[in-house]
Structures are given as structure tokens and as C-alpha cells.
Simulated scan of single mutants.
Amino acid sequence: YSAIIDVRSPSEYQDDHIPGSINLPVLSDEQRHEVGRKLHRADHFAGRRLGASLISNNIATIIQNYFMDKPKDWRPLIYCWRGGQRSNSLAYVLAMVIGYRVCVLDRGYLTYRNHIISQISSFSDCIKAKVITGPTGCGKTKLLHFLSSCGEQILDLEGLANHKGGSILGGIDLPQPPQKLFETRIAQVMRTFDFNRTVWIEDEAATIGKLHIPRKLWEAMLSSPRYFVRLPFNERV
């Protein structure tokens, strides 16, 4: 595809999205909630009419801002949440009015999300993990990254979770991603593994900050061999 276009609202996109996709929302967060309020009040006709008006205006802006320089053979994949109303709205204009060859992802982001869950589960069933454990500040994360520099496969869950762990001085201090995006990051890394080889993982609780390690992966970690790192107390970070 020439591009993958996520037409969901900005907050939906930030929660998780297909890697490499661009966000061209046909409804803003505020507009989506406004339409949703009418639909939830059982005023479906008024809600759909309002949605059509807002989406039409937004599609015109999207075409002006993004599509004016795209060649005739440009071929996007478009998706929304699930139902297809938002993605098909943009797809219809691009395909039937302009003439692009457009694909719409069947059942949208939900298809992708189910794929991520399935991948993590199947990868966790066949992973040959070795878990690095030990007290706080003994250098487990440094050891993990040293192993990576030596060509070993690692799954750095704290790094993917933007979490600095229990050490006062160490690690990353960034906002944590949403749970779904965390799981997407895990799946992306796991896709690169040769499952005939060992994967080194730092020992973690079931949660890392506010995020939960996927259950199948957590169970695989619990049943894997553990390697204890010892360091004198006065040398710990």
C-alpha cells in the first residue's frame, strides 16, 4: 500500500494504531462525542445526519491538505474502529469520485487488535525465555542490554512500557503508553525473534507501572529458568 490511513479520532489513534499508519480523522474527538450523544439518545436519524455533515466537511479538508499531490496510482489502505462507516465514507470519495484504488480493512482496527492478541499468545507458547532476576539496583537492565549488544535476543518490557523500574536513579522517565499500544510494541518486538533461540527477559511483576504484562507472556515468564544477579548492597544503584 502507498499509505495506511487511520480515520478514527485523534484520541483513538493515540490509544493504539497500526504501526506506520497516519491519522486523518474524519471526525474530531469533540465531533465524535457530539454525534455519539445523539445516537445514544435514540435519535439515530439526527445523529447520522449530523455525522454526515461533519464527515463531509472534514473529508473536503483532508483532500485539500493531503491528497492534492498524490498520483493516480496511489493506493491507500483505510480503516476505522469496526463498523466501517467512517472508513467507507473517505474510501467512497477517494475511489468513486476521484478514482484511486482504495482498500478498506474489514472490521477495521478491531481486526488488527485481535491479530495482536493472537500473536502475543502464540509467541508466548513457543518462546524459550530465560529470566534475569535479583534485587532492585543490581543492574538487571544493564545486563539485559549488554546481552543484546552481544547478539542475544531480549524483550525489554520496562523499555517498551517507558518505565524506570524500582531504581531511584535508573531508566526511562517518560509517560507510559496506553495498554493497547504497549501490547502492540510487545508484538512488534516478538515478531523479530528466532524462537529456536533464547530470549532474555528481565524479571517483572505482573504489572509495570500502570500496565499489565499480557497473561500468556506472564505465565511463560513464570515457568522459565531464572538467573539471579547478586551485587553487594553498597554497589547497587
Rank of each mutant, 00 (worst) to 15 (best):
G36F: 11
V26E: 02
S28T: 05
Q188S: 11
D106S: 15
D69C: 09
L157H: 08
I4R: 03
I208V: 08
N65S: 14
R226Q: 13
E34M: 11
I201K: 03
I201L: 05
L211V: 05
Q85K: 15
T133Y: 06
D173Y: 03
L77I: 13
N162S: 11
I186Q: 00
G99M: 05
E34I: 13
E204V: 07
T184D: 03
V97G: 07
N196G: 01
K38N: 05
Q179S: 07
S53T: 07
P71R: 11
Y13D: 08
Q119D: 11
R75D: 06
Q153D: 02
L157I: 05
S149A: 09
F193W: 02
G165A: 12
K72G: 06
D29H: 08
G51F: 00
A161S: 06
V237L: 14
N196T: 05
C80P: 15
R41I: 05
I127Q: 03
I120W: 02
K164C: 00
E158R: 06
A129I: 05
D194W: 00
I116N: 00
L211W: 09
C103T: 15
R8E: 15
I22G: 03
A206L: 10
I201E: 00
H40E: 12
I201C: 02
F182M: 09
F45Y: 12
I208H: 04
Q14R: 13
F146D: 09
P232F: 13
I186F: 01
A46I: 09
D6C: 05
D203C: 00
G151K: 13
R226S: 05
G137V: 06
P76M: 11
G137R: 05
Q119W: 04
R236N: 02
R75K: 12
G47R: 00
V7F: 02
D125P: 06
F67P: 00
Y79H: 14
S224I: 14
V93H: 08
R49D: 08
V229I: 15
L174V: 09
P25M: 10
S9N: 09
F195L: 04
P71V: 10
R215W: 03
L217K: 01
C126F: 13
D125H: 15
A205S: 15
A42T: 10
F146M: 13
W81I: 04
Q176P: 06
T198W: 00
A205W: 10
E12K: 06
P135D: 04
A206Q: 14
V35M: 02
G151W: 13
I63R: 00
S9D: 10
L147I: 10
Q153I: 01
T207R: 15
D16N: 10
C103S: 12
K210P: 10
D194M: 01
F228H: 15
I201S: 01
Q179E: 08
R113N: 03
L110Q: 15
G209P: 09
Y112L: 06
M96H: 14
Y100E: 11
E152W: 04
V229G: 05
Q14W: 07
F45C: 07
